[in-house]
Design a protein around this nucleic acid. Structure first.
Length: 469
RNA sequence: GGCGACGUGGCCAAGUGGUAAGGCGAGGGUCUGCAAAACCCUUAUUCGCCGGUUCGAAUCCGGCCGUCGCCUCCA
């Protein structure tokens, strides 16, 4: 399996530290608001990675942090006059709901920053002992000048960096403007934890260094996040972890590209910052959102539009229709060779596409080639056992895609239509009788009635069949 | 100013040296009472533009044009 390693910027064969086992760290949400669709794209990419690793037989141990102490959280909690635990709880809840809605698998560990302050303090103390950190007033900073490797991930040369206007009060007391904060002394009214430097709270980057080490070890296999985290967050994580531990933090660094909306970056001022809830409220289905997010390679920017969601729906319908035809398909005493060929080709191409840096677009291409083959076979008669064979292929593919099983997604979007299966069966039977007596006007009236109830009738050679649309 | 990515048919999107996957859409046909679904055919002699390397390039190199991202707490 090959993955594009941001560290070195090249495609590399995945070689686990421990055979058959992948330890994976994925940067999680800052729980100060409901996550938006761009955040979810990254979590989706990480889900595809996780599922693909499992698909290829690896055991996966994954940790995703929940950043539950941070400037925005503190400010918002202060404003709402509640403690940060109370403030973040609903956002943690909605985060897990959104993951479930998109069929993103639960991972093994969701460590929270506020529950790992001791580990962070210990790491900062090590950094201080090795000369990589220094105290200034109530805070502690990382000394970039002491880290020869600094910049190896992002390729950034801080001497060349244009000085921005973003100078924060925290930066007073720094030896060097490039240094970043490890520990912030508490100001009036802020949440605080005890430390050798007095009461305060951790800087942002240190939580991932400390928690990844706790749950995955000093060196683990893969670290993921959105591209925007490449610098400074991941660069700083590497600086902290590797200066403290004298060994690589992660062997492979994977970054997903951004999602834009109507060609522009999402931002609150443009009003294009959608949450999953916003989209569902507009009547869009979670299933088509998952499909759309799968349909573009993770290292490509994905432009999110409602048109594309509608296309995604139609693409899924093609799969659903094939399965519908399959369920009603007749198995004959036909030569199984053609189906075996198609199934084998699909299995090979699908697995190869995913093994090639998670090429989900190519994997879906293989799927549709297979759909086309199976449709042809259904027209000509499936061989014995054909239905089971096809379903097995689709089921296997869906271990990664988690989007093919229409029934599994149905409950959340069930329109109903008001008719029971028995009622529909009766209407379809009545229509068949009308057709048999060539009373097509009556037959069409019934079809129209069913259509209004969201039921589509199809007339096949061996009788009429129906499905809810 | 620094670093990086991208530009493939009407739209979306794979393909990174061997002669353009797939989805959506469109047109024609078969099947059907009519549909629906499916199948068949058609829809890029061509991959932003210009040079170069090569037997051969969408794929490598150089230049240009255009779009986008990051440059200290934004996935």
């Amino acid at each position: 399996m090959k993955l594009f390693n941001s560290l070195g910027r090249r495609l590399q064969e995945l070689e686990p530290l421990e055979p058959g086992h992948i330890r994976l760290y994925t940067c999680g949400p800052t729980v100060y608001d409901r996550v938006h669709i761009g955040n979810l794209r990254t979590f989706m990419f990480e889900d595809v990675l996780r599922r693909t690793l499992q698909f290829h037989g690896y055991r996966v141990t994954q940790a995703m942090n929940l950043t539950d102490v941070e400037d925005k959280i503190i400010a918002a909690a202060l404003k709402a006059k509640v403690d940060i635990e109370t403030f973040t709880a609903p956002h943690v809840g909605s985060f897990f709901e959104d993951l479930a809605t998109l069929r993103i698998e639960r991972v093994e560990h969701y460590p929270r920053a506020t529950e790992h302050v001791a580990e962070m303090v210990a790491m900062i103390e090590r950094l201080q002992a090795t000369g990589h950190a220094y105290r200034a007033d109530d805070s502690v900073f990382f000394r970039i000048a002491a880290d020869q490797d600094y910049g190896k991930l992002s390729g950034i040369d801080l001497d060349q960096v244009r000085r921005g206007q973003r100078v924060q009060s925290d930066e007073y007391g720094k030896e060097d403007a490039r240094d970043f904060v490890l520990w912030k002394g508490a100001k009036e009214g802020e949440p605080r934890w005890p430390s050798p430097w007095g009461p305060g709270r951790p800087g942002w980057h240190i939580e991932c260094s400390a928690m990844s080490q706790k749950y995955l070890g000093k060196t683990f296999d893969i670290h993921c996040g959105g591209v925007d985290n490449l610098f400074p967050h991941h660069e700083n994580e590497i600086a902290q972890s590797e200066s403290a531990n004298c060994c690589p933090q992660a062997r492979y660094w994977l970054h997903s590209e951004h999602l834009t909306v109507d060609g522009e970056k999402m931002s609150k001022s443009l009003g294009n910052c959608y949450t999953l809830g916003d989209l569902l409220d507009r009547g869009l289905s979670a299933r088509s959102i998952r499909y759309l997010l799968l349909s573009v390679h993770y290292r490509q920017q994905l432009d999110f539009t409602f048109d594309k969601l509608a296309e995604a729906d139609r693409a899924l319908k093609r799969v659903d229709d094939m399965r519908f035809r399959l369920a009603h398909g007749v198995e004959k005493d036909n030569d199984p060779a053609r189906l075996e060929q198609a199934a084998g080709d699909f299995e090979t191409a699908f697995a190869a596409a995913l093994a090639d840096d998670l090429n989900t677009a190519a994997a879906l291409g293989a799927l549709f080639t297979f759909v086309h083959e199976v449709n042809g076979l259904i027209d000509h008669g499936l061989p014995a056992g054909g239905r089971t064979r096809v379903e097995a292929c689709l089921g296997r593919a869906d271990e990664v895609l988690a989007v093919l099983d229409a029934a599994a997604w149905a409950e959340s979007t069930e329109a109903g239509g008001g008719l029971s299966d028995a009622e529909i069966d009766a209407l379809v039977a009545a229509r068949s009788e009308a057709r048999a007596s060539r009373d097509f006007a009556a037959a069409d009236r019934i079809r129209e009635q069913l259509s209004e109830a969201g039921v589509v009738v199809e007339d096949a050679r061996d009788g009429s069949r129906w499905k809810r649309s």
